[in-house]
C-alpha cells in the first residue's frame, strides 16, 4: 500500500513507519519525496495543500498525520460523539481539516479520497517510546496532571528518559525511536491501552483502511 506520513522529524517518521506497518500487518511504500511539517500550528496550515497534492498528483492510498499534543487539550472519548468537535483538540482539528478539504474531491486514481489516520502524541512522541518501560508515562497520567494543573513530566524530561539527553543527535534519535517502537510490533495492545486516544484512535483509523483501501 502506498502511504504518506506527515510528522515533524525523520525520527518520528521512522517510528511511525514501523507502527503503521504493524497495525496494517503489511509493508508500506512511502510517497516520495517525504512530507515534513514544522510542528504545530504549521501542520494544520500545510495539511489542506498536502491533501490536495496527494489526491491529485499521487496514487497514495492514505495519509498518516501525527502531532505532539504539547500542552493542548487531550482528545477524549467525548470528542468521538457524532458531530462533536473540540476546537482546542489538535486531533479534532486535524480530522476537521481532512473532512473540509476532501469534501468536494472527485474520485481519482481508483479511490474516492486519500484515507485518513490521525494520531496525537501526548504530550510528545517520546511518551510512546517509553511505553512498557516507564509505567508512569501514560495518557491518563498526563490528563490527570492537566486536571490538577501540575504536569507529571515535561517534554524535555521525556527526551532525557529516552535519549539520555534532550539534545540527541538525529542519527541516535532515529535509532532509539525505531528500537522503542519495534518492541511493540508483535503486540500493540499495551500502546493502545496506555495511549488510547492519541495512539488508539490512529490505530483504529488504520484498521478501517483495510476495509476501504484498493488492493494492489
Amino acid at each position: 500500500m502506498k502511504v504518506a506520513l506527515l510528522s515533524e522529524s525523520p525520527a518520528d517518521e521512522a517510528a511511525l513507519r514501523v507502527l503503521v506497518e504493524a497495525v496494517l500487518s503489511e509493508t508500506i511504500v512511502l510517497v516520495q519525496p517525504g512530507l515534513r511539517a514544522r510542528g504545530w500550528p504549521n501542520v494544520a496550515q500545510v495539511l489542506p495543500a498536502i491533501l490536495r497534492h496527494l489526491h491529485f498528483n499521487t496514487d497514495a492510498a492514505g495519509l498518516v498525520v501525527v502531532v505532539d499534543a504539547d500542552d493542548s487539550v487531550v482528545h477524549t472519548a467525548e470528542h468521538e460523539a457524532p458531530g462533536y468537535f473540540h476546537p482546542q483538540c489538535r486531533l479534532c482539528q486535524l480530522r476537521g481539516i481532512f473532512r473540509k478539504t476532501q469534501k468536494r474531491f472527485p474520485p481519482l486514481h481508483g479511490r474516492d479520497r486519500v484515507l485518513r489516520a490521525v494520531g496525537l502524541a501526548v504530550p510528545a512522541i517520546e511518551a510512546w517510546y517509553l511505553c512498557g518501560q516507564d509505567v508512569q508515562v501514560t495518557e491518563l497520567a498526563w490528563a490527570e496532571g492537566q486536571a490538577l494543573g501540575l504536569a507529571p513530566y515535561t517534554r524535555r524530561e521525556l527526551k532525557w528518559r529516552v535519549y539520555g539527553t534532550d539534545r540527541p543527535n538525529l542519527g541516535f534519535e532515529i535509532q532509539r525511536a525505531v528500537e522503542s517502537v519495534r518492541r511493540h510490533r508483535g503486540d500493540l495492545r499495551r500502546l493502545e491501552t496506555d495511549f488510547p486516544q492519541g495512539f488508539g484512535r490512529m490505530a483504529h483509523d488504520l484498521r478501517d483502511w483495510r476495509q476501504t483501501a484498493p488492493r494492489e
Binding site: D70, D71, Q146, G149, A151, P152, Y153, E157, W160, D166
Partner: peptide
C-alpha cells in the same frame, strides 16, 4: 494556552 508547571525533574 501556556505550559503547565511541572513536577521537579532531577535528570538534567
Amino acid at each position: 494556552s501556556g505550559p503547565m508547571p511541572a513536577v521537579a525533574f532531577a535528570g538534567e
